[in-house]
């Protein structure tokens, strides 16, 4: 009788050990951030590589109904067997600010602006608060992902034109700031947006050459707040603005 009792305890112990081991989570190092194209695959991936520039995306852990996704589009731009592309309104903005939206049945929801669009277009000036930048791509993504029941806890950004880039720095100010870019850092795109809280804005092409490497630059607004000035020289102008933002796409080594 006593033996049977001990055998039972032995069995329970073994089961508990087996269970505890089976719960051990395993994490693996998958390498550095040498960037690859999002693994959408197939025709969808080819399309994005050709058309897309800056994008914000999520990957749902479920199959998506692409016909249902179309109900959130202002216009349908392209339909493939596994994906659909359309334009999606950004709340508070007119049609020219619409984001393109790629929805794949495998779970990909990708909001993007085309390759020709400057990255500075993404800032949502209507939502800007000091310390907090909201992008139009996020706003558009939220509408579609929310409608399809997909969580936005893991929104990522990528730029199809610069697969080697791994950072987008957005610097927002009301008057002026100083910036130094070390020579070791590859820069791919620099442009600026001058904006107001009503959502109106102008984009200024700055160019990589305006921010000489290893030099402290002073970047600010002119006295009438209509020009962006770098080291005392006007780089480009728009209209009176409350804020301006500098966008730098680069590779952090």
């Amino acid at each position: 009788m006593k033996e049977r009792f001990y055998m039972r305890v032995l069995l329970v112990g073994l089961v508990l050990v087996a269970l505890s081991l089976s719960f051990t989570p395993v994490f693996a190092q998958t390498g550095s951030t040498s960037l690859q194209s999002p693994e959408v695959g197939g025709e969808g991936e080819s399309f994005l590589e050709k058309e897309a520039g800056i994008c914000a995306y999520v990957k749902a852990n479920k199959t998506l109904d692409i016909n249902r996704a179309k109900s959130y589009f202002r216009t349908v731009e392209k339909e493939g067997p596994d994906f659909v592309v359309g334009s999606v309104p950004v709340p508070g903005y007119d049609t020219p600010e619409d984001a393109h939206m790629f929805v794949h049945k495998d779970g990909w929801i990708i909001a993007y602006y085309s390759k020709a669009e400057p990255v500075a277009k993404i800032i949502d000036w209507r939502s800007y608060q000091p310390g907090k930048v909201v992008t139009k791509l996020y706003q558009a993504l939220a509408n579609v992902a929310g409608g399809l029941g997909v969580s936005l806890t893991n929104v990522r950004y990528y730029h199809y034109a610069y697969p080697e880039a791994n950072k987008l720095m957005i610097i927002v100010d009301r008057d002026s700031f100083k910036i130094t870019i070390p020579g070791e850092i590859p820069i791919y795109e620099v442009n600026a947006s001058m904006g107001r809280r009503d959502g109106n804005y102008g984009i200024i092409k700055v160019g990589v050459d305006k921010l000489t490497l290893d030099v402290i630059h002073n970047v600010g607004l002119s006295n009438d707040r209509k020009w962006i000035v770098i080291d005392g020289t006007g780089i480009g102008g728009w209209d009176w603005c409350e804020f301006f933002a500098l966008f730098i796409i680069y590779q952090e080594k």
Partner: peptide
């Protein structure tokens, strides 16, 4: 690293592939 001084907001966003 890129250094920025006196700006209201510096938002350094990772660009990552999936």
């Amino acid at each position: 690293r890129i250094t920025v001084e006196y700006a209201d907001t510096v938002f350094n966003m990772p660009l990552v592939s999936a």
